[in-house]
Design a protein around this nucleic acid. Structure first.
Length: 198
DNA sequence: GGGAAGATGTTCT
DNA sequence: GAACATCTTCCCT
């Protein structure tokens, strides 16, 4: 599979967030391959966005966000869960795209085993914490180059099937709740929440 | 050193 | 729809 490259990630964060929809997230391991198609993302910006982890400057936690585009930014939240982001924009700016939901493609049995829950197929990877569990992504991938195995982003030549894109407000925030920076594949069954809010 | 909040998921009503 | 488990990070005292 052809991989998404630096020229893809180094663009405006909102463009990358929108354009990631329909492409592949792939994870190889000794247990096998797990892949899925990205169907929901959120953009976190450097300017006028208090919900962004980089809003108050660089810290040890968010340092990866200020590095090269195309790296993984993975952080631990609520004592149980990881969230997977793709660093975007120019180096030093501090922006990223949160991958919130994917549609499972390869490795469904492995996904079920890792999730360890008797849930329907549409509930296996429809949320940032769920997909990290399903793809076995943890903080050891923080700073990982997403152009390299075992965690990478693949080009989908039939990405047009995952259009049009709908824009909504972001999920789970206590600040900047009104910003239209969440992007979903219209009508997709694997979204973490309904595609319209309000 | 302490405390509050957090880009969530699950379970219960 | 609401409560809560769980723990790291960061800001404040």
């Amino acid at each position: 599979m052809q991989l998404l490259g630096e020229n893809f990630f180094g663009r405006e964060t909102v463009e990358v967030a929108r354009d990631l929809l329909g492409h592949f997230l792939c994870r190889e391991s000794a247990e096998g391959l797990v892949s899925g198609i990205i169907v929901e993302t959120e953009a976190y910006l450097s300017n006028n966005d208090p919900a962004c982890h980089a809003a108050r400057g660089k810290t040890s936690r968010n340092a990866v966000m200020f590095g090269l585009p195309g790296m993984a930014y993975v952080y631990f939240i609520y004592g149980n869960h990881y969230c997977f982001n793709v660093v975007t924009g120019q180096e030093g700016v501090g922006e990223a795209v949160l991958v919130r939901s994917v549609e499972p493609v390869d490795g469904l049995p492995l996904i079920v085993a890792r999730r360890g829950q008797a849930v329907s197929k549409t509930n296996l990877t429809n949320g940032p914490g769920k997909l990290c569990q399903a793809f076995d992504v943890d903080s050891s991938f923080n700073g990982h180059d997403l152009r390299e195995k075992p965690l990478y982003l693949g080009l989908n030549k039939t990405v047009s099937q995952y259009r049009p894109v709908k824009t909504t407000t972001r999920i789970g925030l206590s600040v900047a709740q009104d910003k239209p920076l969440r992007y979903v594949v219209t009508g997709n069954a694997y979204l973490s929440r309904r595609e319209y809010l309000g």
